[in-house]
Amino acid sequence: MNTNDQIREAFAELAARAPVPDRVAAGIAGRSRAIRQRRLLLGAGGAVAAAAALGVPALFLWPGTPSTVDELLSPVRWRGYPMPFTPSWLPDGFNITQRRVTTGRPGPQRREWHLNPLHLHPRVQLELKLGGPSPWPSASTVDINGTPGWVSHSKYSASCSWQPFEGIEMRVSVAGEPDEPDTDRGAQFAETVVRIARSTGVGHVEYLRPTMSFGWLPGQVPLRLAFERHDRPDGSGEMASAFISGESRRVIFAGVFDRLDDSIRLEEAQKTTLRGRPAWYVPPDPQTETQGPGTFVVELADGRWLFAATDPAEGGPVVTKDDLSRIVETCRLD
């Protein structure tokens, strides 16, 4: 058999692995709707168009309708982790600054948008949590696309939670400048969070593909792993984080960023070599840090900076300087 015949046979074999037509056909109508919606958003005037252009990520739709939390949150091989219930409306001018997904198994997710990424406020935050709804006692009820929701507000913030899917609670919150004197924008913010919540849908998905992950971690306690993407003018990059399982406390983290955080002062650090690259060990500052082992920083060949540090917590793992060095050496980068 010559190469040409072998190639024909190989292609025939590959064609036999084609996806099932029924499943593909089932997803086409949904995608058409999404494409129509994208066109409408881009074509519309005012706040919706601005939101679509500036802050709201492109939407995708599933091939089918997920029926379990596992199906809803499991990664798609080449796209990454789905982040469902993406809003198709945000107030004017908000840009996405952070996305976080739990990796390895279904878990919490978080996204943040800022009007000015260099300022903490105003901020829109969208969280996905596993479990049933947990509204504030003082919250009032609203309808979110046929599902009960709960909205509450203070002078400078508002939040709305609802259960759009069995086993999932979504919460969107808006926070303004807390130091604005004599203002009460709570009612306005409450309208905003409800509008954002109503603009989400189960099929409104964006994907986050982890581009870095831990290779080795100390194994004393179970940890929940997460991947984050940060998009900020003062430094964009990716982070792998380990949380105390079931808690929101990040205890170990490693990141690759295009800029080094201003707070890390290499001139006072000890020079070393990690991953075959110039590296620095920044000892813990007794004035500002707890009992952590400090920070390691590596200058990568592509000009980015890899760093790793810990945030010790009660019940969390004890991480030594050697452990942290091993974490840096074994981090997997795409």
Partner: peptide, 15 residues
């Protein structure tokens, strides 16, 4: 890649 094929065909046919 069958997975990519599925996505590409779905996107193309939706358009």
């Amino acid at each position: 890649d069958p997975h990519l094929a599925e996505d590409v065909v779905q996107e193309v046919l939706a358009r």
